[in-house]
Write a protein that binds this DNA or RNA. Structure first.
Lengths: 187, 187, 187, 187
DNA sequence: AATGAATGAGATTTCATTCAT
DNA sequence: CATGAATGAAATCTCATTCAT
């Protein structure tokens, strides 16, 4: 079945691109890891780059929409916690996608492609996050948005580098407490 | 002069490795940007990898020691501010080094080399940061150390991606206020 | 029906081999143009080369015999005119076959195959042409045979390159007049 | 020396492209015949196609200008003979270029490139040939131009296919006699 | 009979590295 | 020291052919 081999290639490539980077990954390695012949790769994708573009297209679609769900948590703290859990849960569920996107974000050209691709999602998330922050008591929601974004990126980079060492949950709990405490005290 | 061409190669390679990544950079490009012949590169360095190793060795030595200076700021807040200014100032002064180190940190093997190389520095900084945090009122200095590390990485990644858009100073001031406020209120 | 798909393949291959050349034509293209699957091509023909061999065999058989018919024109001029019309008419009716044979004649190995294949026909034509030329007044029928052969090839190459521009009929009429005039004046 | 290896590649490629065709020639063969490494080919030429483009550019320039020389032959017959000798001499001196150009003329896209490239030359030759034909007594110089072109192409194709068998000089002499005789008798 | 996914040998192209000058 | 032509191993990509369905 065509779809089967295609997804074998995609997932082999995702792992390799994420762990070694696009240029350092050879089509031989992809073929080997995906257990298909090199020729088959090029009957699915015109070029090596097209594999990465397909990953960006399809894998982003696969996991980003999950955030869309309206979460029904009642109070703001619970909502923010749930929001953060959603994000940080991805780190554990899809570390390869996160690692790949950290990588791609360092390349100007790929960053552009990612941005274009995720534009509508990013806007929705930013909007939701901003609403949440205001509900949670933030006086400077724009700055707090930046702060949360920065924290997510930083946490991702550190968690990816040493998942077993990094105190993901402690950091998360601490952050929520810290931010809420600050917002409360500003009132 | 030998040293001159060597540093031309190093700085050309630094820029390219940082912007495009190690594998995606060719020795031809380095030669062209460094305005030297390809042959000369290999009379200075045995392999392309050696150029990167030299960058790690020399450039890290070049900028890391600046943190060693005992800063004479009086109160803890000033000290932390100065410490953060030091770090974040690097983003503006040496964006290529920061970008390169963000990249290398995503690769397991390079990460190890970086860690080994920077071990003594990292330990000193962590120790100094911990002291600072305690002086500043942190009740959980270990968690705060992680937090600061995470913040630096996240800020770096976001600043590098769009230096002119990212409100570096606003974020820095906000963070200091936020952290101190939290620490104070915990007393 | 088996014969139907076979002839679809043959005629797709003929067009592509003629227009792009044997090596530059892929079996994918043949399949696409012939509206059959690639697999089917190889159930009809063992190799790509076999398709070309089949074209040579079958298509040459299909059109060469037409010259065999005894033409009943009375005087030599009419006969030669009819002979030339026969040849040159092929250019308009079967340009692909002509183009293909021009191509194959440039390749030593294919030329040999063509010669072997068409041997009996060629001999008959040469003989008939020689008779005709003698009847028409040629003093040097061997040289005139070469000349006619040369003219046919040259006309074919030029007509194929720009059918709508090339004054095929003017050239033909002019040639007949020129040759006959020369032969007459030699008497 | 760079120019030396370049011309080794060019002349190896010319021979192979002429004898086997562009698509049927591999870069391996070119490297082997030119006695250079495969890598060197691509430091001289970006793609295989570029080698052919360079041949078209440089080799055509190398031999076409020879026709430009004003020949000082006195009477029209001598002039035409000299003109034909020039053309047909090329067959013996540069059979590979002639064979290659016969091939390229069968491909629509290459034909266009050849035409574009040789445009100015072709126009000059056509003009000179027309003048010559008029001086020689031609009443239909345009048709005669076509005729001469056709003859050259046909002669080339036949000579190339079997140089030792084809009576090049006999044909040439016969043609001159035939044409002049016709033109004379028209007066 | 028919399909088109799959293969693998081989073609084109790239690039770190060497070496003659 | 310095150059850049040259190399060859390896990377990307193509395509005739096979084969499971």
């Amino acid at each position: 079945m065509k779809a089967k081999s295609r997804s074998a290639i995609i997932s082999a490539a995702l792992e390799l691109f994420a762990k070694k980077g696009f240029s350092a990954t050879t089509t031989d390695e992809i073929a080997k890891k995906g257990k298909v012949s090199k020729g088959l790769i090029f009957s699915h994708f015109h070029t090596k780059e097209d594999i990465l573009l397909a990953i960006i297209d399809e894998e982003i679609d696969r996991f980003l929409p999950k955030f869309n769900q309206d979460d029904d948590a009642r109070d703001p703290k619970e909502k923010l916690t749930s929001f953060m859990n959603g994000w940080l849960g991805l780190l554990e569920k899809e570390p390869l996608l996160i690692l790949l996107s950290l990588r791609l974000n360092l390349d100007e050209s790929w960053r552009k492609i990612l941005r274009r691709k995720g534009k509508q999602y990013i806007e929705i998330y930013l909007k939701r996050m901003r609403d949440l922050l205001i509900q949670a008591g933030s006086k400077k929601p724009d700055l707090d948005c930046y702060l949360i974004g920065v924290l997510f990126d930083g946490i991702a980079a550190n968690y990816i580098a040493a998942p077993e060492m990094f105190p993901l949950n402690d950091i998360k709990d601490y952050l929520i407490e810290l931010l809420f405490s600050y917002w409360q005290n500003q009132k």
